[in-house]
Design a protein around this nucleic acid. Structure first.
Lengths: 254, 254
DNA sequence: GAGTGGTCTAGACCACCAG
DNA sequence: TGGTGGTCTAGACCACTCC
């Protein structure tokens, strides 16, 4: 360990604690910090990195949650022996394209369609839409591929009333992220309430996902909320995963 | 809103922020704070509850994550219109009995069996067991019921070498929690790495869970780590859920 | 401009672990 | 006994929202 760890004053976009966490990840990846090695004490490390102890602790907590570091009370903080590879974590909300990229594959899209229509009742109910408030939605359907092979089928509904203008998504490109387009409209998605159900696909879906017969899949039903959208959800999606090609994982804490 | 909100000095077990969160939940449940109502500002609320602002913020953040409260920068913090009922959240690791109790049902157990044997290869691999280090495990199988009806089938493996003595779990009672027994042995489970896969049950499992034919289920494969067990997992479990009776949910953050 | 949540700091006190 | 992580406090400054 040497000097020059300071990280403040770089990009002012991210939270300071997250930038510190990235810096520590980098030190481990580069071999500056070796597996099993003990880190300096928290006050000392905070001073070296030029941040306060609470900020350093938030960074360390993130790495502990990701199984990269390990804390032992009264002893110290250590680099874990086998730092695990990150998987498709359910606890983090990321765009599908980024998810596929994280797995080291190249994302693509097939069968994109954008239309305007009223959603079926179970979708309208979740979105809180009634005929009085206007139930018209933008519906986006597409199949996502990884390295050219289909991995999931997406069915997304966005109420027109949350958009700055109803045509905001009509020109969505094949490689564009709905999340990014919503963010441009001031509707950055921050939270999704998700329910996970197993399902036997119908023949149409089986063809789209190239599934053999009698293969159950996972369906994620997600209700998305933006940071400034009060109680109104901005997006409902049903994503059907080919679970032979993408594994869903979660880290649970007690 | 009135005085008498102070909560400090009660049980010193939980984190202060969590006790504050519980108190706020209570105020909402009792109707002291109504849906849509604006809370006092953070500095004022912190003063009323007798805690610092960072502590109050940790409590509020927990309720925001649970969709109970909602923050609007520059405006205030509000009680959400439809405070959702809590479901089986994937992000939190809780014992099965507690999960069923949270859903308002009465937990029970059927077909309990405890045996000692070597695990199949895929289990041994996940637990990091080799013949050299000793692969012998305690295996616990049982069907969990809610209000008398089967909701999940559990298959749990604990390496004998992590237990204080190999017979530590042999007398597990029908209504006992494996987590609690491990905690008694100084192996409190803090973290589980989980993978979620859909599955078509075989006839035996279908009978146990009272499932109709052609009904896919969810299987959670979980590798559990204790707080002080360094890199060694202490428990591997495969839980098969009757997803018509228990819904798996998760809150994802961006 | 007044009030709000968002962030970060500095420092205190404690419980735990090792020598 | 000394060093470590675990927790909580007090207060600062900022960006945002609304009047």
């Amino acid at each position: 360990m040497s000097q020059g760890w300071s990280v403040k004053g770089d990009e002012e976009q991210q939270l300071l604690g997250e930038r510190i966490a990235e810096r520590l990840r980098g030190l481990i990846a580069q071999g500056v910090l070796l597996p099993g090695e003990k880190l300096p004490s928290e006050p000392e490390l905070a001073a070296r990195l030029g941040v306060s102890r609470p900020t350093l602790r938030s960074a360390v907590s993130e790495l502990v949650a990701d199984l990269v570091l390990e804390r032992r009370r009264g002893v110290g903080t250590f680099v874990r022996q086998a730092a695990p590879l990150l998987q498709t974590g359910l606890e983090r909300l990321v765009g599908t394209g980024d998810t596929i990229r994280q797995l080291g594959m190249k994302p693509g899209v097939a069968d994109l369609s954008v239309e305007h229509r009223r959603p079926p009742e179970h979708v309208a109910a979740r979105l809180g839409l009634t005929a009085a408030t206007g139930a018209e939605c933008v519906r986006i359907q597409r199949v996502r591929t990884a390295d050219g092979r289909p991995v999931m089928s997406c069915d997304e509904w966005i109420p027109e009333r949350v958009l700055p203008d109803p045509t905001h998504l009509d020109d969505l490109g094949e490689h564009e992220s709905v999340y990014e387009r919503l963010a441009e409209a001031g509707l950055a998605v921050r939270l999704a309430s998700t329910s996970i159900v197993p399902c036997l696909p119908d023949t149409d879906l089986r063809r789209k996902l190239e599934l053999p017969p009698q293969t159950p899949i996972l369906v994620l039903r997600q209700l998305h909320f933006a940071s400034n959208s009060a109680d109104h959800p901005v997006l409902y999606s049903e994503n059907s995963y080919n679970s032979e090609r993408i594994e869903l994982t979660a880290v649970r804490r007690g």
